[in-house]
Design a binder for these strands. Structure first.
Lengths: 195, 195
DNA sequence: TCCGTTCCGATGCATCTGCATCACTTCGTC
DNA sequence: GACGAAGTGATGCAGATGCATCGGAACGGA
């Protein structure tokens, strides 16, 4: 058993490079050569880690999805004592990737989502991520409000956060405006339901 | 002044081909050759109509934006007698491109939006479209509800429709579920505001 | 120490891409 | 009717892209 290399960490390293490139010039700016260069690795190494380009993209997308999910989870776990209202607010804010330092992640996610519309293998991963987030939202909503249909409310919130993210990326909304919209929506969720 | 050709109609014809291709294989499946073939035109003709590929994409995007806007306008104008509530519902539904026959348009739009995140010239067109739709929504909302902040409500509705469209395209939501969400949201808009 | 397996990086190759070029057709004008 | 500008479409070209290949380096076991 000669020279063993940590494949997993290398794959992550390459996935990071994919994300950086996709952030800068979209998903079509992601070529094997550029990825290799950005990851400080030879093209051969990239080809060893991933048999094909699509395989690489799938891994990168999964990688990002996990990162976002992890951050949302951490944000919720970080302050378990607070009300479910603020927990939900934090979660939704995190999903929206509104903060400047996560804008890149959002751009990459958007690029992948668009590609997923014509690529079943990517679409499946995206769906899985959305399903997870929606379930999380639904749980928080159910235990924090008397909403009749938590699932529908969760679907609404998820779609809203997604749309807001997109609109911020495009420059149609400022991050502040998006936060304002999100906050108002959450307030409406509590206000009328309690009344 | 020899042989004059109707440039505008040819440009539209090419834009249609761009959309069909983008619908099938994403925006990166749009090459000059394929566009020419799909539009039943020689590559030279395409190059004459549009000096560069980006120019062509910009035109196609504008074309789609206008089509959607026109359809929304027509939908509203078609039944002016009804309540603003249903008018708004129709407009939002139309914007969401939920109907099967407009799914292609939605896919193309999503592809362009993702590209716009890294292309200023496309982003500008997308922004213009969103601004127009938001203004329309805001107007309808203002004259139909007693909402305190019509602009914010419009922003919310627009982001929601956009998110729903995306989620339907990805397959995370069925069109019926998206319609359900949209309808419930509109109801909430009237219910609590009136109370 | 030496061998063999595993991995690496460079190079090759067929294909495709956007754009430029150029001979040719078409048609209004003189 | 001929001239010539406007428009057309085939072809050329340089560069990029994904993938395959191959000689050799690196490293664990005997």
């Amino acid at each position: 058993m000669p020279r063993q290399v940590d494949h997993e960490s290398r794959r992550r390293q390459i996935a990071e490079a994919v994300c950086r490139l996709a952030d800068e010039s979209g998903l079509e700016g992601v070529t094997l050569r550029d990825v290799a260069a950005r990851a400080q690795v030879s093209m051969g190494a990239v080809q060893r880690c991933f048999g094909t380009k699509e395989e690489m993209l799938v891994f990168a997308l999964t990688h990002i999805g996990e990162r976002v999910a992890a951050r949302v989870g951490a944000r919720i776990a970080a302050s378990p004592a607070q009300s479910a209202r603020t927990a939900l607010g934090h979660a939704a804010t995190e999903v929206s990737l509104l903060q400047e330092e996560h804008r890149a992640e959002a751009r990459v996610w958007l690029a992948f989502v668009a590609q997923a519309a014509v690529s079943p293998s990517l679409a499946e991963i995206v769906r899985t991520n959305y399903a997870g987030l929606q379930a999380l939202f639904a749980r928080l909503i159910a235990e924090a409000t008397e909403t009749a249909d938590p699932e529908r409310t969760a679907r609404t919130l998820l779609a809203l956060t997604d749309g807001l993210t997109t609109h911020v990326l495009i420059g149609h909304l400022t991050p502040a405006a998006a936060l304002d919209v999100l906050d108002a929506h959450l307030n409406d969720l509590w206000g009328p339901a309690a009344a």
